[in-house]
Design a protein around this nucleic acid. Structure first.
Lengths: 233, 233
DNA sequence: GTCGCTTCCGTACGGCGTACGAAACTGATA
DNA sequence: TATCAGTTTCGTACGCCGTACGGAAGCGAC
């Protein structure tokens, strides 16, 4: 007759929805965005979901799977506009910028993923398909598209990682040499002010700089010497 | 035969040299090279040194300091030949290659350092002084040497990280685009042994490719438009 | 001797991931 | 409606971890 509820019924609990895999990932992402990956524990995650730590294990095999799931979830959120008829240089710039803005949306998570989850890029992710399409459109031989795309990802991720963890800023404000010993004339018109600008380096600018340099290098290589590609090494 | 026991052990003791900071770092490096950074614990480290875990804390403030110390120690080992009169392209190639071989000597440690210790490059490390000197010699204006050097480090580290954790191999064997053709045969690579790989992507080659592309881009930018540098783009 | 200082170590606390089994809930069936 | 099987939730517990704390062993100076 009476529905006997020993446990406080709905209403008393904060959570009125049952645990789900997606819900766990979402909560984990919330905590990670807030405090970083290393501060995420299964107990805190359970608390956030108003559940017992062990309850999570019916939806997720272990903590590592949580991280992988969150990463995959965020990676799947990636969207970019594909300008079909723009020059490949423009398209790749846009793609990289979109990717960078995703990284800025969840910096703590992506800084982790970049170094700990080599498979956070999946072959059918929109990012990868777009990138390979652009690289192919640039004129890279079909057989090397993957390699070139892989290298571009590695480079971009390298710069992003350095940007996210502060290394880029730190290095670029390092003094070039230390003592004098300036040999081999570098065109040097700058008076001796050690330019300790409080502003520091502009990360947007630096990102674009790498991108442009990379693109320029690729252009040169593609137009100047097709034989160089085919010769390989 | 009387044994020279200057230190009659309370309890049984195997270690006859006292603990030192350097000794702790050396042992930690041994364990890291073997099992990876994440497997290093203060207890295992103490066992390796035949000491009580708490004894380490008289020479080192905490575990994080151990990691930082080991990283610094390895970083200080970096050596490169400086070809004073070679063209900067050649010099930078050599520097990057030397750096890469250091990374291959302690892959587990450096994969960690790259992402967790933004300050593992110090202003007076031979690596940094050599790099900034070369960049300056290439003709980059004094005021931007640091930025360019920082970017090059970020790029190289990005590629090395991807190489060390297997991502580079994985990505470059990814199918370029469509889900139409189903091909299997993903063979996992063992990081570190880049010797005689019979299969597709040659990591040495890919590293050189990035380097060359970067250098080419830099060349073009330097020779074609000096105004571009000065205008700050 | 007996101090004071450095080095070493035993014990212990709080937190972690998660194995295990019991309890509670759910929907299908009788 | 009562029963029951399967799923979801939870309590307890184990073996790790980093490290705080305080006591003990060695050693040079007096």
């Amino acid at each position: 007759m009476e529905k006997k509820v020993r446990r406080p019924p709905r209403g008393t609990r904060k959570r009125d929805v049952p645990l789900t895999e997606a819900g766990i990932y979402a909560a984990a992402l919330r905590l990670i965005d807030e405090d970083g990956v290393e501060a995420l524990t299964m107990r805190k995650l359970a608390t956030e979901l108003d559940a017992n730590p062990m309850s999570l294990y019916h939806h997720v095999p272990n903590k590592d799977a949580v991280l992988r799931g969150v990463t995959r979830m965020v990676g799947a959120q990636f969207r970019t506009v594909t300008l079909e008829d723009a020059p490949w240089q423009e398209r790749i710039r846009l793609l990289a910028t979109d990717f960078r803005s995703l990284a800025h949306r969840h910096p703590k998570l992506l800084a982790y993923s970049f170094s700990h989850q080599p498979d956070f890029i999946q072959p059918d992710d929109p990012f990868w398909t777009a990138l390979t399409a652009i690289v192919a459109a640039a004129g890279v031989p079909q057989s090397e598209v993957s390699e070139i795309a892989a290298l571009m990802v590695a480079v971009v991720i390298g710069v992003l990682t350095a940007e996210l963890n502060g290394a880029l800023h730190q290095w670029s404000t390092l003094k070039p040499h230390g003592p004098e010993a300036d040999e081999d004339g570098a065109a040097d018109a700058d008076p001796g002010s050690t330019g300790a600008a409080p502003e520091g380096p502009d990360q947007d600018h630096m990102f674009r700089l790498v991108l442009d340099t990379l693109i320029t290098g690729l252009e040169t290589r593609l137009t100047a010497g097709r034989a160089r590609w085919d010769a390989g090494h």
